[in-house]
């Protein structure tokens, strides 16, 4: 655990390599959301968004890691989830974010839906090098 980024503290890291890891990741996010004092609806939204991202990481990205961070002021307090893989990346991020777009059997609501469920959403992807999605929910 490093504290190189002064604006956030890493709380927990969960490797994503098996289906069980998806559950572990969800539990970890739920516990962190609870500990940060998020209400039931906010918790559910954050856990669901994280669930979409780790499933993408597992299914499309060939596995990776989920990291839970606490964002500290300035400017605001929040909970941040980073999901990263070194898979094939996303060719067309705008298309991938559109509802109903899927290159697999999925519903294609994962990425776009996750973006709507959180306060901040950042997608970084380079074809051939992997994908990182960072979502933030402000807690105050």
């Amino acid at each position: 655990m490093t504290h190189s980024d002064l604006s956030s503290t890493s709380l927990q890291t969960v490797p994503i390599h098996t289906e069980e890891d998806l559950l572990t990741a969800r539990h970890a996010v739920r516990a962190a959301a609870l500990a940060e004092g998020l209400g039931l609806v906010a918790q559910t939204k954050l856990v669901t968004a994280a669930s979409e991202l780790v499933r993408n990481c597992y299914v499309h990205g060939g596995g990776g890691v989920l990291r839970i961070e606490r964002v500290l002021p300035p400017p605001r307090r929040g909970l941040r989830i980073v999901v990263a893989d070194q898979g094939p990346g996303i060719e067309d991020p705008d298309a991938a974010l559109a509802d109903g777009y899927s290159t697999g059997p999925g519903l294609g609501h994962g990425l776009g839906g996750a973006r709507r469920l959180v306060d901040e959403f950042e997608l970084r992807s380079e074809p051939g090098r992997g994908t990182t999605v960072v979502i933030t929910r402000w807690t105050a």
């Binding site: 039931l40 609806v41 918790q43 559910t44 939204k45 669901t48 509802d99 519903l107 609501h109 776009g112 839906g113 709507r116 469920l117």
Partner: peptide, 13 residues
């Protein structure tokens, strides 16, 4: 649950 219903609606499902 209402929390699940809100989330699904926002996911567009």
């Amino acid at each position: 649950r209402y929390s699940v219903a809100i989330t699904l609606a926002e996911l567009g499902l």
